[in-house]
């Protein structure tokens, strides 16, 4: 009886020890991974930071207007080019000749759709 108990306890200790080591190594591995991820996040953030500065530099208004003028043929907009929607003339609506449907036609369509 006591021998079985000892055996059970020993096994339990072994399993617990193994489990403990397994968890420990797993945690260590994950921590390393986390550290690497943090480092890469930092690197990315730094890269984004630098790219933002470069983006701002490339978006210098003088440079953009020069590019727009040379490659797109655009010029600064003036107020007279802006028109309110209300100021637009009404579109001339052309009434097409739609025949008034007869009662038979309506009934036929209703029958078909059923």
């Amino acid at each position: 009886m006591s021998r079985i108990a000892v055996l059970v306890w020993l096994t339990a200790i072994m399993v617990a020890a193994l489990g403990l080591f397994h968890v420990k190594y797993e945690v260590q591995r994950l921590e390393e991974e986390l550290g690497l991820e943090h480092q890469s996040i930092l690197e990315r953030q730094e890269a984004i930071h630098i790219l933002k500065a470069e983006w701002s530099y490339l978006n210098q208004p003088a440079r953009l207007s020069d590019l727009a003028r040379r490659h797109l043929g655009l010029a600064p907009m003036v107020g007279t080019q802006v028109v309110r929607l209300d100021d637009l003339p009404q579109r001339a609506v052309q009434k097409a000749e739609v025949p008034t449907p007869t009662l038979d036609a309506i009934l036929a369509r209703a029958r078909n759709s059923r």
Partner: peptide, 29 residues
């Protein structure tokens, strides 16, 4: 076990931006 060590990039001096968020001054390594 270890709280995230870095959520934001630490710069020694904050950026200055215009009213639309365009970067006017920044700190680069």
């Amino acid at each position: 076990a270890a709280a995230p060590r870095s959520n934001a990039l630490e710069t020694i001096r904050a950026d200055i931006v215009d009213r639309n968020g365009v970067v006017l001054a920044t700190t680069l390594p």
